[in-house]
């Protein structure tokens, strides 16, 4: 079944982008799951598609795989139509919903799927890469969730794809399973494979991606390296009790350097900003504020504020 690869005229287009989405929209009845996404993923990138549940992550990945068609806009994968890229084994995926046959063993499952591709890697090779060598003869039904997920990963590696998509790959795994899974992915990505994964775990995006694309409500709300995303969230929250707070005072605080938002709740003032010292100094010296409290903000807050999922502290 192995075929020697040959150069073809298509190489010019496939060298361009791993994924190219242009103004992609997708509706289900009245619900618009994806509302205009533009995204280019370059070869070799490891991209996290980060967002809360219902952000449109799975729908977008389904369109990249050709499992769903965009309502409008265009999707290109490796310069090809998604179905063609999948049909050639150039793109593979570990899907949330992808099932396995419980009555086959791990190795049989790999041989089953391997028989469908023309350009394949060895069974032993993918089992090793997925850390499944010791489990080769185990029935799939007896494997843990993490082991089954590594099997899906092994299946995805069979065709030696240029692009690997992972949809919430570690959902339901314990800490150890998650760690083993990601180390297998990381080791593999070192060889230059483009990886795009959807997750709602911040730590995963932070730890394993070169680039984070933050999605919310079917749109991209931020796109950059983990450091860049974090930078958008750098800052602290200053909270103080201030019974005689009024609009003028709020305007004054809002005008301070680095202040991103001022929020009044009853007799409390909550200020978000990058220069907490300046805010604290102002509050203590120019107003009647007391009981001052300063709290740092992390990636979590950035995530929540950028995705609009934060109901507690609208910034």
């Amino acid at each position: 079944m192995n075929q020697t690869s040959t150069l073809s005229p298509r190489s010019a287009t496939t060298r361009s982008d791993a994924v190219r989405l242009q103004q992609v929209r997708r509706s289900f009845g009245d619900v618009e799951a994806v509302r205009g996404i533009d995204l280019v993923v370059r070869p070799g990138e490891v991209v996290a598609f980060l967002g809360p549940n219902g952000a449109g992550k799975t729908t977008t990945l389904d369109m990249v795989l050709g499992l769903a068609r965009p309502t409008s806009g265009t999707v290109h994968v490796l310069g090809l139509d998604p179905r063609e890229a999948v049909g050639q084994g150039r793109v593979a995926a570990v899907m949330q919903s992808g099932g396995l046959l419980k009555d086959l063993t791990v190795a049989e499952t790999v041989r089953y799927v391997r028989s469908l591709f023309t350009h394949v890697r060895d069974v032993d090779d993918v089992l090793e890469r997925a850390g499944l060598t010791a489990l080769a003869d185990r029935r799939v039904g007896l494997c843990s969730g993490g082991e089954q997920q590594r099997l899906r990963f092994a299946l995805a590696l069979l065709s030696d794809p240029d692009l690997l998509l992972l949809d919430e790959p570690t959902t339901g795994m314990d800490v150890e399973g998650r760690r083993t899974f990601w180390s297998a992915i990381r080791d593999d990505a070192r060889h230059g494979r483009t990886v795009m994964f959807a997750t709602h775990y911040l730590e995963e995006a932070d730890a394993y991606a070169d680039r984070i694309v933050l999605v919310s409500g079917g749109r991209i709300v931020a796109d950059g390296t983990a450091a860049e995303i974090k930078a958008r969230a750098v800052g602290r929250t200053v909270r103080a009790t201030c019974p005689d707070v009024d609009d003028a005072m709020v305007a004054e605080i809002a005008a301070l350097p680095g202040v991103e938002g001022v929020d009044v709740r009853g007799s409390s003032v909550v200020v978000h900003g990058t220069d907490s010292d300046a805010v604290a100094r102002h509050l203590l010296t120019r107003t009647t504020a007391r009981d001052l409290e300063i709290v740092g903000r992390g990636l979590e807050d950035a995530f929540l504020s950028l995705t609009g999922a934060d109901e507690r502290t609208p910034a």
Partner: peptide
């Protein structure tokens, strides 16, 4: 096989 999602897995093959 459709209900457990195996068919969906197979849709990612040729």
């Amino acid at each position: 096989e459709r209900s457990v999602g195996w068919s969906r897995q197979l849709r990612l093959t040729p």
